[in-house]
Every structure is written in C-alpha cells, then in structure tokens.
Design a protein around this nucleic acid. Structure first.
Length: 601
RNA sequence: GCUCCGUUCGUCUAGCGGUCUAGGACGCCGCCCUCUCACGGCGGAAACACGGGUUCGAGUCCCGUACGGAGUGCCA
C-alpha cells in the first residue's frame, strides 16, 4: 500500500500480513460475558515471536511485520512502521534527496529555492507494492457552505494519494440533506478545488440522486432482518435523550422497536440492527488499531420517516458502488467508521482502507470557526495566495517528509504516504503561509507571475479597477517592473499594490512622507538630473545606472541624496523597488514627465 | 457523563530505545548587506505536559494523572 521502495525481498510476507489485517478490519468480537471465553488480547511480543527471528536494529530494509505504533493503547501491533529513511534508495535519487546532506548543517533556503525552481517532474515513480485493485479515493464534501481549509487539505491528501498510486480521486457531493444544501455551495466547492488545482476523475456524484439505490439497500437489510422499522417519533426520541443525559445514562437509542412483533401503522424510520455487545475494530492507517465498544454504537437510522436515506447509509452504499478503496477524511468521522464497518459487514461488502486525519485548529487551538481562519479557499485566493504555495503549506499540516519544507507538487506526489501523517491536530498559521507564498512568488519567472497576478486580480481588493487601467496601459511596464517587485511582496495583493504606481495618473498623488523628499533642494537636484536622463539613448537598465552614477560623480551627490527625491517624484512613495528598476520600468518619457510634474507643482 | 484520539521551542514539525549537549522551518531578537522597503547572509533566545514503571539506558515502550480535541442527531 503506502510502502515505499527498498524492501522488495520482504514484500510477500508483508502482503500476507496486510491482507490478514484487512480481514480483521471491522470484525466484531462477541463478548460472551464469561471471562474464559473472552479472546485475550495477544501481546505484541507474542506476535513477534511467531515470526522468524531477525535482528530488530539496524536493518537494511524495513521489517516485514508491522511494528508498534507510537502510543497505541488498545493494541500496538497494527500500524505499518514508518521506515522512510531506513531503506536504501534503489532508484536514482531524486534531486532533493541527493542534495540533502545526510546529517550536515542546515542547507540554505537559497539552495532550496534553487532546487524548487529547477526541479522537474520526477522521472521515476516510486515502487509500490502491487495492488490487487486500483486505488480509488474520494473527496466527499457536504454542500452546506464553502470549501473550508480543512476540507481543502482533506481533498489534497486524497488527491495526492490517488496520484501517488496511479489511481483515481472521485468527487462526491454529499447532499442528502436537501434542506441545507445549496447550489451556490456546490459551485464554491467546485471552483475552490479547481483553483487549488485538485482535479477529480470522472463526473461529480451527487449523492441525493442515488436515493433510490440507497433505499433499495435499506429494504434489503430490512428483508434480511438486519434492520427494523422504528415507530418512535422525533419528539419521543429527543425527550428520551434529554432524560438520559440528565440522569447521566447512555444517550443512544433505547431500541424500543427492535423486537417489535409486527408492523404498526404510521410513519417509521428504518434502523440498523447493530450488535449489542462486543466491540468493533477498525484498522486505521493514521490512527492505528482502534476498537470501539459496540455499546457506544447505535441502532442508527438508515431511512428517515419520509423515506429518504441518511448519510450513514448513503456513504457506505456510494463508497461501495464507486469502488472506493481508501477513505481519507477528518478524524471526526472515526466513530462513524465503526458504524459504517458494521453496515459493510451486514451487506457482505469489502471494507475499504480507512485513514482518519486530524482536524486543523485555529490559532487558539480550538476547532476552526469562521472567526479565525475557517475561510473558504476563495478567501485565500482573494488574499493573494498562490495555489501551489497553499498546497505546500497545507500538506505540511500534519504530514512531513523529514525536514523538508519547500515541496513542489511533483515531489509531494512522489513522497506522500499515509504513514507519515501525524495524529495530533495542527494549528493554522498565517505567518508561515505568507512566508511560503513569498518564496514561491520570488522563485517564479516574471511572465508566470504576471499570469498569476492577472488571473487573481478580479478577486483582489482594488484589483478590478487596476485591471481596467492595465488594459489601457498594457502590461509592458509591469513585466519590466516585476523582478524588482516580486522580491518585495509575499502575496499577490501586496504585489499589486506595490505595482500601482506604474499605472497611476499624472500628476501623481504624493504621500506625505514622500513629500518631504521633494523639498526645494530635492526638486533642484531633480532639475539638474533631467538633461542627464534625456541624454540616455538606449533606455536600458545598464545605461540608466551608468548615467546616474556618472551624474553623481560630477555633482558629488550620494545615491541616497538623489534616489529619495527621485523615488518620490516617480512613485509618489518612499517605498519602491530599486530606483534604476523604477526608471527602467516606467520608460524614458513617463519618467521625465513625472519629474517635470514636480518642477511645475 | 460515556467512548475514542492526542500532547517535542509561541507555531508547523524531525525523532522509529544509545549517534539528543533534542535537529529544521516560520515568527521573534541582534549584526551584516544597502538608494527606501524588502530579499539575502550570519548569529541568538526558545520545547520533550506531569508522575510512576520496563530497561544497563526512555523524547522514543507500558500504566496513570492533567490538559486539549472529536464523537455521542430522522446533520453530514
């Protein structure tokens, strides 16, 4: 599965183990009540002893059996070990791997950026264990709001996993709750994924359209005696729940209707007949082996009293029908996985591989709320972040590959694996995103950055207006200014604002601070400079700089004395790219005109 | 309440029983570069939640405590 290369010789045994593990998934351990009948938990050590003895330390390849997870309390034997660096690389090193010193001092960011800039798509795919079936993941958002950042990361992980295994990622819109689903939300999700570059395979599946199929499965369960009709009303249920909560008892359904002898009149829901005792085990690729007492699992509702299917039924049926092999989703679904396992079993269907990833928290450690960061991805676009930077930031939230920070999408696909996902929730940190975005912006070739900027401008604050001005003035000056601009901005919004002076109407508005530089003395210096500038034939950066430096030599001025008034006159601000760059970007005529404006004013 | 999950610098993380005097990144502080602002370079402060246990040896394994999170719907 998410094995990496380097352990080919131990593959068969691993496979065996793997399938054995899969079979155990979702199994129900019947609790007979008598101590002697109870299956004793096999200690980890006993399992090891059954295996051929091999030295545990310093192995050249990963051990063929799963090793204990980090702090798995229930059963520390299920999680495939992380073995990232333990296996020797059999394939030609990837560029990043190659330049990473094994244990040396930190390599410079400059070097990282260089690599980022020059890295090509990997030519060698990682060797993965042969799959019995193609990997199919899915992203299944409910269209009750925008695509928030946590959902975006879930989508990313699913996308990455599918791409890494040459599989497919499907998109399913979970809209079984018709009253809360909106078309606008669906559009926002599609648009958000599109912007983030997370393309899905095939057509999106709209869950509510499968309702007939879901109902059919519920009927089947009913006829097989694995589900039953429940005539309790919603009011009764909520009253019982409140009472139970008040008395500190179990809050689940009390199973009043489970053993009803015959059908009654009136509306009913269809409930799943869940096992009452024992426990359900799920083998999670991230959380490890988790067992949940069946007493915690309810006789959940499959069909509402109006005949519509609930989420719990729909996911199982759809995931099965869509051939989903790996379910990667937020760990708020962990207990659902147990419930769903029971349904899979009742239906005799193969249980997919589960991977429940921890949620993203806000800066204060609490669950993300709209107040702090649970913005839709379109908000990140509006703040001027690059999709590839956001992807890089997101993938590092909970997943890591050694000390690597700058990870191109091609590298993510090559390196991504479920085994390197952490179990602790991460907090969202704008400062780091901003930094990452700046790195990506600086590394981008000017024409590419220009394309990104232009595409983002309709979404930026003040972007549409500037866009109109750019349409009139053309992008030539912008393209010339970009190299100087791009290393001064860490998001497109700031970049756009910094570029604003290029398209400002004459005479410029001069900021108060800048006005100070345009004292009488400053203006006089500019006046003296005019002939020098006029004399420049070929308006190239080199010529401009040479002319200015010559001018300083003859006048005895320092660059600082000249640059600030010039900057003020040219940009109306005290902050701008290097003054030679500004002159070059603006062009000869515009530069001279702006200087003249100040002489008049 | 019950069930499940988690806890390494402020934040994201590396760590797979000895190589940990705990590494990297962001942020912060200082210095350098410099025409402004940035970029960049160099340096610094900063963490194994707590208590037991296992072991010759624990950040790493086990148990407990504290704290945090999730679930506990005719929501998804």
């Amino acid at each position: 599965m998410q094995r990496r290369q380097g352990a080919a010789q131990s593959e068969p045994r691993y496979q065996q183990q793997q399938s054995g593990r899969l079979e155990r998934q979702g199994e129900i351990k019947r609790d007979t009540g008598s101590e002697s009948d109870r299956q004793p938990q096999k200690p980890a050590l006993a399992l090891f002893e059954q295996r051929p003895l091999q030295p545990l330390k310093r192995m050249d390849s990963a051990p063929p059996w799963p090793r204990p997870g980090r702090s798995r309390r229930s059963a520390p034997i299920c999680r495939p070990a992380r073995h990232r660096q333990t296996a020797p690389c059999s394939k030609p090193s990837h560029i990043f791997t190659r330049i990473l010193p094994p244990a040396g001092p930190a390599w410079s960011m400059r070097r990282a950026r260089h690599m980022l800039h020059h890295s090509a798509a990997p030519t060698h795919r990682i060797a993965v264990a042969p799959m019995t079936s193609k990997v199919i993941t899915r992203f299944a958002p409910s269209p009750t709001g925008f695509l928030h950042i946590g959902g975006a990361r879930t989508a990313l992980f699913n996308w990455l996993y599918a791409r890494a295994h040459n599989g497919h990622m499907h998109l399913r819109i979970e809209d079984t709750d018709r009253s809360r689903s909106t078309d606008a939300a669906v559009a926002a999700i599609l648009d958000g994924l599109d912007w983030l570059g997370l393309n899905w395979d095939g057509e999106p599946v709209y869950q509510h359209r499968q309702a007939a199929r879901h109902r059919e499965i519920a009927e089947r369960l009913l006829s097989e005696g694995k589900a039953y009709r429940c005539y309790c009303t919603a009011e009764e249920l909520s009253r019982k729940r409140e009472e139970a909560a008040a008395s500190g008892g179990r809050t689940g359904y009390d199973r009043t209707c489970r053993e009803l002898a015959r059908q009654q009149d009136g509306p009913y829901t269809v409930r799943f007949k869940a096992p009452v005792d024992g426990e359900t085990v799920i083998d999670d690729q991230v959380q490890g082996r988790v067992s949940i007492p069946n007493s915690q699992l309810d006789d959940l509702v499959l069909l509402r009293s109006d005949g519509t299917p609930t989420y719990m039924l729909s996911v199982v049926v759809d995931d099965h029908d869509m051939g989903v092999t790996h379910i990667i989703r937020g760990d708020d679904h962990l207990t659902n996985a147990a419930k769903q396992s029971l349904i899979y079993q009742a239906l005799g269907w193969q249980i997919p591989v589960f991977a429940h990833i921890p949620l993203i928290h806000g800066p204060d450690g609490a669950k993300l709320s709209k107040r702090h960061g649970a913005l839709g991805v379109e908000a990140y676009r509006a703040m001027g972040y690059l999709p590839e930077a956001l992807r890089n930031y997101l993938v590092r939230l909970g997943w890591s590959h050694g000390d690597d920070e700058i990870i191109s999408t091609a590298q993510m696909i090559e390196w991504f694996g479920l085994d390197a996902i952490g179990r602790a929730p991460a907090r969202f940190d704008f400062a780091k995103l901003e930094n990452l975005n700046g790195i990506y912006m600086r590394e981008m070739a000017a024409p590419d950055l220009l394309a990104h900027l232009l595409a983002a401008m309709p979404h930026l604050e003040g972007g549409p207006e500037l866009l109109r001005r750019i349409e009139v003035g053309g992008t030539d000056s912008l393209l010339r200014a970009l190299p100087g601009l791009q290393e001064r901005a860490s998001n497109l919004q700031a970049l756009m604002q910094a570029a604003g002076f290029l398209f400002a109407a004459r005479p410029l508005d001069i900021a108060p601070k800048a006005a100070k530089a345009l004292s009488e003395e400053g203006k006089a210096r500019l006046r003296e400079l005019i002939p020098t500038l006029e004399a420049i034939g070929d308006w190239s950066k080199e010529n401009i700089e040479a002319a200015l430096r010559h001018h300083m030599e003859t006048t005895g001025l320092k660059l600082g004395n000249l640059a600030q008034p010039l900057r003020a006159a040219l940009t109306g601000s005290t902050v701008s790219p290097g003054i030679f760059d500004v002159l070059y970007a603006l062009g000869k005529q515009e530069s001279l005109d702006r200087i003249s404006d100040q002489q008049a004013g």
